[in-house]
């Protein structure tokens, strides 16, 4: 019990206390300690990564072994990862090598396209918000449209009222006002709440009230 529960909790408490104090001490001992902690965290991460690779190969390997649906694609995943790794280790990572070509023309291409799918998804998300259930969602959408228009040259040209009454702001002006005033207020209020939440959860962890991350049972 001591080794499985008390000592880990003590480690959490001690680390939390030390790093909390470290923030207030500018002495170089404190700086060295912080740097040392960062180095340790990186080394732990290095070894923990081994488990993630084991997990990946195991999951796809199991799918192949059990002939789960679409197991052939798991073969592709494993082969691609092994190929990429082999080329990277043996040939090197310079421009023009297979490793970099695979990176640029496969990984970057696919990731870039996934990112660009967002352009389509945003419009369908906006459409769904438009058919919204509540006035609040409509407020969200209206604010979004105004800011969108305000950030492109189109917004200036559409602001027809500006020619009649120049003192009235254009779309860009309204958009900037929205960004700087109500948006700012909302963000500040949220940040205050989030800050409270973060500090509370951190304190609960350090004091040992919240223990589920350890998996020791509630």
């Amino acid at each position: 019990m001591l080794w499985k529960k008390q000592i880990p909790l003590a480690i959490t408490f001690i680390m939390g206390l030390l790093l909390g104090i470290q923030y207030f001490v500018p002495h170089r001992i404190s700086e060295n300690f912080f740097q040392g902690y960062l180095d340790w965290a990186i080394v732990i991460g290095i070894f923990a990564a081994i488990l993630s690779y084991i997990s990946f190969y195991r999951v796809h390997g199991m799918r192949i072994k059990k002939k789960a649906p679409a197991w052939q694609y798991s073969v592709v995943a494993i082969v691609m990862s092994v190929t990429m790794a082999l080329f990277g280790f043996i040939q090197g990572r310079e421009e023009g090598m297979v490793f970099m070509n695979m990176y640029s023309y496969i990984l970057v291409a696919i990731e870039g396209t996934m990112f660009s799918l967002l352009a389509f998804y945003i419009s369908s998300a906006a459409y769904r918000a438009f058919r919204a259930r509540s006035t609040q969602a409509t407020a969200l959408l209206l604010a979004a449209i105004i800011v969108m228009l305000g950030r492109v040259p189109l917004g200036e040209s559409i602001s027809f009222w500006h020619n009649i009454w120049p003192s009235l702001p254009t779309f860009t002006g309204i958009a900037n006002w929205i960004l700087n005033v109500p948006n700012m207020a909302a963000k500040r209020g949220m940040q205050l709440g989030i800050g409270l939440g973060i500090m509370m959860l951190s304190l609960k962890i350090i004091l040992g009230i919240e223990r589920s991350y350890m998996g020791s049972g509630d």
Binding site: G61, I64, K65, I78, V79, V82, T83, L86, F87, V98
Partner: peptide
């Protein structure tokens, strides 16, 4: 690790490509 025939085949292919 599961004994899968695909693994040695994949390794063989990769070496061949290289």
């Amino acid at each position: 690790l599961p004994r899968v025939r695909a693994v040695p085949v994949a390794v063989f292919l990769c070496v061949g490509i290289w």
